[in-house]
Design a protein around this nucleic acid. Structure first.
Length: 380
RNA sequence: CGGAGCGUGGUGUAACGGCUAACAUGCCUGUUUUGGGAACAGGUGACUCCGGGUUCGAAUCCCGGCGCUCCGACCA
């Protein structure tokens, strides 16, 4: 398990923010459910037994009542929705949350990419029939494509056909190419899609209209997964609605997950270089890293003009609402540069005696290393 | 679940069964220094994971426990 420290938490929250925007854009409503799970609901779907689900963390109340720490929330939300869905007029619904999941994996690995406690965005859809569900499923798939594009992973992330479990023929995984991943997928560059090794067979190839010869084997990490659930949960828990003719019908459901922590690990894995992290601006903990190199010790109240210039630039960025990290430590230039590279904030500004003498500030791009001089008077 | 390895100052490591457990780094004081992880000097910091055993003597060997890492299997 991992603790997120200040810089890492900012990045995690950026990722959460992007996912939230895209979920809201397809009509998602955010909720927050409890991690403590009621045994009754899970017995109804036959997922309480440790022999069936072997990743449960279970615990007990003082009075002996058994509880589980949720590893997903289909049961919990379906139970809630029974109070809110009566009629076809109550549909469709799409409900999501960012919530801590617990999975007692026999072997956690790869740092934050696979931990026993992790944050997950899980959205669940509720529709009147398969047709309405299929339409929403496509919207959700597109939202996922948008998310990974905004996160800077668009080019190396593939919609991947995977097993649908007992619910449907296929599910769709979003697989990002990296040797740090645990999955093996077969990529079809021309169609910009992939097939998980687990389901690669002649039938799948025929369904997708592709030839095996056009596929290339790659290592990848599963950053998202969307499922059609059919009526498995609504049948088991009795989530029904009355249609226009007054007839009871089970709600058609889907579930859609993304692990923000795993996404964060994937971005770090793919975009870093030998000097450290290289965050895309969309998820960087700060947009700007301002470094003060002063020849004098930064004593409060000193007449250090270089520091004054840096302080003013800092204030100006703050006023404009730019997220800026100001390194005014009394450390050597080399140490500050190294730390800056390591942290990976997209743009670095350096204010020093040398630059101030020319009325300038140095601007350096973390990703390209490109350096430009900017007039101090240009800072608004 | 199968296999392998490891627990020593805050961190990373070293130490044949034998001297006061060493080195680097960090941290603290002072001087000095400031465009790519500075220099010098002084200082701080460890019941060697826990319990037992063998031995004149254990960080080191043996047994048990706890914890961690890695490989594989598993991962609706």
């Amino acid at each position: 398990v991992y603790s997120f420290l200040p810089l890492g938490l900012r990045t995690l929250n950026k990722i959460v923010g992007i996912i939230r925007e895209e979920m809201n854009a397809i009509g998602g409503q955010e909720v927050s459910m409890t991690a403590l799970q009621d045994k009754k609901n899970w017995e109804a779907t036959n997922r309480w037994d440790d022999a069936v689900v072997d990743i449960w963390f279970k615990t007990k109340l003082k009075n002996g009542t058994e509880l589980g720490l949720g590893f997903t929330h289909e049961e919990a939300l379906t139970a809630i929705m029974k109070d809110h869905i009566r009629s076809f007029r109550d549909l469709p619904r799409a409900v999501y949350q960012f919530q801590t999941k617990f999975r007692n994996e026999e072997r956690a690995k790869s740092g934050i990419m696979r931990a026993r406690e992790f944050l997950m965005k899980d959205l669940y859809s509720f529709n009147v029939d398969e047709e309405a569900h299929a339409k929403f499923y496509e919207q959700a798939k597109q939202a996922y494509v948008n998310i990974f594009k905004r996160l800077g992973l668009g080019d190396m992330t593939y919609v991947t056909f995977a097993g649908g479990g007992s619910f449907s023929k296929y599910s769709h995984e979003f697989q990002t190419l990296t040797d740090a991943g645990e999955d093996t997928i077969y990529v079809h560059e021309g169609k910009k899609l992939a097939v998980n090794k687990e389901v690669l067979n002649d039938e799948v190839l025929a369904d997708l209209g592709i030839k095996k010869a056009d596929l290339v084997e790659k290592k990848a990490v599963e950053v998202g997964n969307i499922f059609s659930l059919g009526t498995k949960f609504s049948d088991a828990l009795g989530l029904v609605f009355q249609d226009a003719l007054g007839k009871n019908k089970p709600v058609i459901m889907g579930s859609y997950g993304i692990g923000p922590g795993r996404v964060m690990g994937t971005i770090a894995e793919i975009l870093s270089d030998e000097k450290g992290l290289v965050w895309p601006e969309a998820v960087a903990p700060f947009t700007v890293h301002l470094i003060l190199l002063s020849n004098k010790k930064s004593v409060v109240g000193s007449e250090d003009t270089v520091k004054k210039v840096a302080d003013e630039i800092y204030e100006k960025f703050l006023k404009r609402g730019v997220e800026i990290l100001y390194d005014d430590r009394d450390a050597t230039a080399g140490e500050k540069f190294s730390d800056s590279d390591l942290i990976g904030i997209p743009t670095r500004y350096v204010v020093s005696e040398k630059t101030v003498a020319n009325g300038e500030v140095e601007m350096k791009d973390r990703k390209t290393g490109k350096v430009e001089m900017v007039k101090i008077s240009d800072f608004k």
